[in-house]
Design a binder for these strands. Sequence first.
DNA 1: TTCTTATATTACCATATAGTTGAATAGTAT
DNA 2: ATACTATTCAACTATATGGTAATATAAGAA
Lengths: 109, 109
Amino acid sequence: MIQLSDATAAAIAERFKALGEPMRLRLLQALRTGECSVGDLARRVGGGQANVSKHLQVLQAQGYVDRRKEGTTSWYRITDPQVFTMCELVCGGLEEELDRKRKLLRRRR
Amino acid sequence: MIQLSDATAAAIAERFKALGEPMRLRLLQALRTGECSVGDLARRVGGGQANVSKHLQVLQAQGYVDRRKEGTTSWYRITDPQVFTMCELVCGGLEEELDRKRKLLRRRR
DNA sequence: TTCTTATATTACCATATAGTTGAATAGTAT
DNA sequence: ATACTATTCAACTATATGGTAATATAAGAA
């Protein structure tokens, strides 16, 4: 992390916030296998089409995905594969956190 | 990323969401040099005491920081240094994103 | 005891956002 | 032309959350 001016802190936070939503994480995972249309994604992750479209725009605004239009359909794809590195890191942290909580529970018995 | 059941997607999202807030990022950075009290942090990052306290609890709930009480003061410290790896990753993404936007602007002239 | 000091908690307000509905836009086919 | 499909946009509701103020709790000092 750098010095963190107000502007950079806000920019970094926006990038994290875009990943702080279950459906957006599912969309990213669905896109992991390759380019998908909005309709495909809505069917695969389960959700209204308009809602999926909105979430995809959030991901695009942060540069995680990119869009390509072909006729009436929009094809979205991952542009920043490092997002998965981040997910793996946060998953690792999750497991440690679960371990920590389990130990706390054991101590309290 | 794994299969992403509803529960795991929600848990991962919570972890990202905790980092999706400018003040929490500043708190983490302030803690990078070592253990700090709530009052110290409030002075260093600039913010009300109650607000800082609340944000620290969010970070603690996600296991990013831990607390140690000594008299009336609470000492917080980083428990998961990998959070900084994540920040570096997201910063890298930020720069790429800025580059991308700069190129788009250039193309439009 | 009373008076600080440090932190946490509660209640409240204002804003942000996820989700839905319906309309608008645009392409394609008949 | 109409009809159908795919997506986006706009408006709305409900909920979540950041910030603040006041209070509560707790520890130490005078």
